[in-house]
Each structure stands twice: as C-alpha cells, then as structure tokens.
Design a protein around this nucleic acid. Structure first.
Lengths: 329, 329
DNA sequence: CTGAAAGCGCTAACAA
DNA sequence: TTGTTAGCGCTTTCAG
C-alpha cells in the first residue's frame, strides 16, 4: 500500500497524510481519520521514498575495525546513545581490520546512504585523507588525531607517561615496554613516546632489548613477555600499551613464578573490566571510551546541523587507576 | 549531480549509466566513457532512489539490548561477517535494555528500511509476537527460542545441567545457584531448570535459601554471593548463570578468604575471556556465540532469498571448559 | 489550513 | 544491445 491508496482509504488527501507523518500542519478531524485508517491498514510510509525527496536518511555510518573489543563497544555505545536520542540510527560497518573494507565503506557512504560518518580507524593513510575530503557529509574520527579533520581522541602519550612514571617513582630502574604497531598513532606510537618520555625524564635510557611490539591480544602479550625474560637483563617494571597485552604478560609471569609487583611491576592502558579481575589487579590508565563516543556523536550532530566547516579536535583526559600490580613500597 | 546530468556529461544515455551500476549489459566503449566521466565528476548514484524502485535496501536491521557485552558483540560479529560477504550492511539498534525501544525499532523496520531483521532480545512478550508477525520482511531471533519464529539458540538447559553435574560428581552436596531474571527464558529460566535437573538427579533437593537472582553484572554477583554466605547453611558449590556473575561471586570469596575450589567450587556459563584470567580460572560452559550469529545470518539470508515460510529452530551445542575453579579431587 | 500537481533520482519495460 | 519513457512513493511548492 502506498500513500495515495492509503489516503483514499482514509478519505483524505495525499498531502494530509504526508503532513501527518511530518510537521503535522493538520486539522484534528483529518488527523483522527488518518489514525483510524492507520489502525485498520497498518500502513507505514516508505523511508527511502521520503529520502529521495528530502535528502535526509537519519542514518549515521559507523566504521570500526572490530566489534568484540571492550574499548570499541564502549565507544559505539556512547555513539548510539547520543545519536539515538536525536532519532538517528547507526549503519554499522565492521571492517574486521581489513583495510580494503575501510576504504570501500567510505565509498559506500558517498552514495547518499548516510547523513554523517564516524570513523574508528587504527591506521591512517593518504587514501583515507583523500576519501574523507571527498565526503559529501560530515565525518568525525574517534580514537585518533588526524590533522584537518574532526577528531575526538585520548591523551595516549600522557597516559603512557603517567603509568610509566608511576612505576619509576616507586624505584624501578629497568623499565620494559610491550607496545602496539606504531602505525597506529594513538595506541602504538603515542603510547611508546609516553613511555620513552618518562624513562628519559627519570634519567634512565630506553633499552631496545626491553622493547617489544605485540598484537592487540593476550596471546601476543604472553609471547612478548617470554621473549623479554629470555635475555639476561631482566626488567623490574613493564608498561604495556593495552590491558590485554598486560594480561598476557601476567599469565607468563604467573607460570614462571615471577611475582607481581615484587619482582615486576606492571601496568596497562584502558582500564578494562578484565584488568580489575586478574589474579593481581592491574594498574591502568582509565580512558573515557564511552565519553569519547558520546562527544564524537555530539560533534557530528553539530556538524550535520550547520556546515560550520571549522574542524575541531577534542582530547579527553585520562585517570590513573592504581592497583596491586604496582603496589610496591 | 543526478543520473541524467551525469549521463549527459559522459555522453551516454541514462540507461547505460544505470546498467553500468547494475547488471552491466553494456558495450565496452560506453563503459569506458562512463568510467572516464566517473573519474572526472566523482558521481555516485543515490541509494535511496534506487531503493524506491527496486525495493531492495541491502540493509539488515539488528536489534540488541546492549553493545558492551562479550557475548553480544561476538554474535554481532558473526552476523556482520556472513552478511557482509553477501553485500549487506547492518542497521544497528541498541535498545539499552529499554523495552520501548525494542518495540519502536521493530516499528521502524516496518517502514521498508531493511530487507530483514535479526533480533537479540532477552525477554519476549505478546507484543513482540504480534509485531514480528506483522513484519513484511523475514526475521530471525538469535539467543532465544520462540515458537513459531526462526531461531538460533543455545542449549542453555543442557549447559547449566552439565556444569552443575560436574560439581556434584566431584562430591559437592550443598549446591547454590545465582541466576538471572527468569523472564529471560534462555539465560534466566532454562539455566535455572538445568541446575535444578542436575540437583534433583543427584538425589539432592534444591534449597530455596541457596538460590538467588542477580542482574547481569559482576557487582550483582558479588552482592548475591554475600547474601548466600550470610545464612548458616553454607554452600559447597555454586552455579552462576553467567561468567560475569561468577566473577563477582569470586571477588566476594577472595575478600572473605573462602577458598576456591576447596571451600567452594564455582562455575559459570559463556566461557568469557575474563573467566580464564580470574585469580582462579573459571570453569564454564562454552557457548558458540559467533557461530550463533553466523547461523542466524545464514538463516536470514535463505529466508530473504525464497519466502519459504517454514520456520526453523537451530540449537547449537555447548562445550565444557573445565578449569581450576572446579578442580577438586 | 488544504489539495493538486510537479518533481526527487533512479530502474525497468518497451520499442527500436 | 540500446535509448525513451513511465513510473516507484513520497515531499513540497503553489494556488486556493
């Protein structure tokens, strides 16, 4: 059933029906007529037909590298909360860390499918830049800072610095590092720079033999910890770029009888639910993921309302969650 | 720019352009002409205009109660993987456990916005039933069994039964239970029934004082465990409906010096990443969440292809992951 | 405040 | 194989 069939059924004009579903510039008797007919027929207007004319999809595209990650699902939850209140729905693309899919969804979103885009990417390239510039709708990047675009990001460098400093201040002097791919500017590069800054400031030097690069997984953290402890210069504190990596490293320590925090202090970033529940509760930098999602959504909303054109960067603060894994006197 | 402007620019007819983007029933020279013009103009066809005619959205609506849950994000990942391969995108609605939003999104999806619906709900009502019946597109329910509709579900009763039996077989004789809202048939009711079946079969009786109903959270598990241990008849084994609840209960035990598994064996359901990492690794029933999502998506795909009308129910198996929390001789 | 009618950008039937 | 053209279902002027 389409709008004119329905209008006939209701005994009103097509425009009356259209107005009923939109601004409601309508007399009460017609309104009642329409509501009665709605009850009878179960008619629903077609969203795409509306979009063809009005150019409004009420859809926001969200591109993310994976779903089953605590940080990403928290961010997405924040996005969905804010956007939902404004009547937007999410068109979700899970790229499964596949670079090609990231690009192709950006292409897809140029087909007037969405009113705006939120991108949670890990690695940025020139192709990203050129595609984002060609975008006809506003876009916001969450979790990374990318000059020339709207971003909501964390203070990754500061967080890594503070956590490392926390351990050095407690007397550690052989700091080790397990980081992530440095092409990921936020979780990879910046967290490494924060670690290095703290080490250098403490008057120590960064020992390349005590620095590893892991994947974002527990297993990888485990492997890298094993490697770290295979050398003769054993670390007495370990900064990990994520809680997951730290958890893997702790698993190794438990197996080998390396005591935390006595033999080795350890901390992560992200303050995951799991970190609190580990056999030694993990000190971590708390990043406000849900807030990041909310702020990203708010930024996008304001972009979609007025084409300001000024791009903004918002950096969120972090908090230090100190727990037993660094509880050395 | 629209299709006719673009066709003019390219020097071909509109149908040539339309064919280029669809079946490709097209001579090579025109194809080249179009591609050159595409390069020049960056033209992209409008998806909604296409949908108005073709009635195909290439969108599947996914309704879920929350995002930041391991089980749900795993299911969603499975859905997205299968559907993505077939060129479908996800229109995600996060209801935040709000019943009203569940209903309103079902309404929303009647506006020809999607080609199919996947519903991950916890509690089913008659309103769900009537709305789902009115649906113009196929729908699949994942995680719950609901007669008369397409479902992919777990063997919740069996899983709870096996985990409880595991502990009773090891000599426990005062079994306790922390479950979820029984209106949630899968995680609430069936897991309770499984527990009760195992207890009864072992020749024991279910002690109502040793049965609690918690929310799906660690905090709630903690509180209920406290309550459980406040009575004089202390349990010697505890079955929890989810790993999260079990983790909360274990936190309480650790605080109070209740030794696991010596004083209390404990197990959960879901086999979460966190469970493996707890201070005593948690025995749990492994449910194949990602597989559930994949199978749900496959079922939906086949429904969308041919209106079979026959509704199917698929129940997935579970596996037992035995760990230290039940490692009593 | 209301209804008629002209599109929105595209697809698909049809004629060539 | 192609191009012309009539819609898809809706919104939005515009004249009443």
């Amino acid at each position: 059933m389409n709008i004119s069939e329905f209008a006939k059924e209701a005994g009103v004009s097509v425009s009356a029906v259209s107005r009923y579903f939109n601004n409601g510039y309508l007399a009460d008797d017609k309104r009642a007529l329409i509501e009665a007919a709605l009850e009878r027929t179960g008619y629903m207007p077609s969203y795409s037909a509306r979009t063809v004319r009005s150019k409004v999809t009420k859809l926001v595209g969200v591109i993310l590298p994976k779903l089953s990650s605590e940080s990403i699902s928290r961010i997405t939850e924040g996005i969905s909360e804010v956007l939902g209140e404004e009547g937007f729905e999410l068109l979700l693309v899970n790229t499964a860390n596949d670079y090609k899919r990231e690009i192709s969804s950006l292409e897809l979103f140029r087909q007037n499918r969405v009113d705006g885009v939120i991108l949670l990417a890990s690695v940025f390239t020139d192709l990203h830049r050129s595609l984002l510039s060609k975008m006809r709708v506003p876009a916001v990047i969450v979790g990374q800072q990318f000059k020339g675009f709207n971003c909501v990001c964390h203070n990754d460098l500061g967080a890594a610095y503070s956590m490392t400093k926390l351990m050095l201040d407690k007397g550690a002097c052989r700091p080790a590092f397990i980081g992530a791919n440095p092409e990921d500017k936020a979780a990879g590069l910046d967290r490494r720079l924060g670690f290095e800054k703290a080490v250098t400031e403490a008057g120590l030097t960064v020992d390349p033999k005590l620095c590893e690069t892991a994947k974002f997984s527990m297993d990888s953290g485990y492997e890298k910890a094993k490697h770290l402890f295979s050398g003769k210069n054993r670390p007495d504190c370990l900064f990990c770029a994520t809680d997951n990596i730290a958890a893997g490293a702790m698993l190794y320590c438990r197996e080998k009888g390396i005591l935390i925090p006595d033999d080795l202090m350890i901390c992560g970033v992200g303050d995951s639910r799991m970190g609190k529940m580990l056999y030694v509760p993990l000190s971590s930098a708390h990043l406000h993921y849900k807030t990041a999602g909310k702020e990203g959504a708010k930024m996008l909303l304001s972009e979609m309302k007025n084409e300001s054109g000024v791009c903004r960067i918002m950096q969120l603060k972090y908090d230090i969650s100190e727990r037993e894994s660094t509880a050395r006197q």
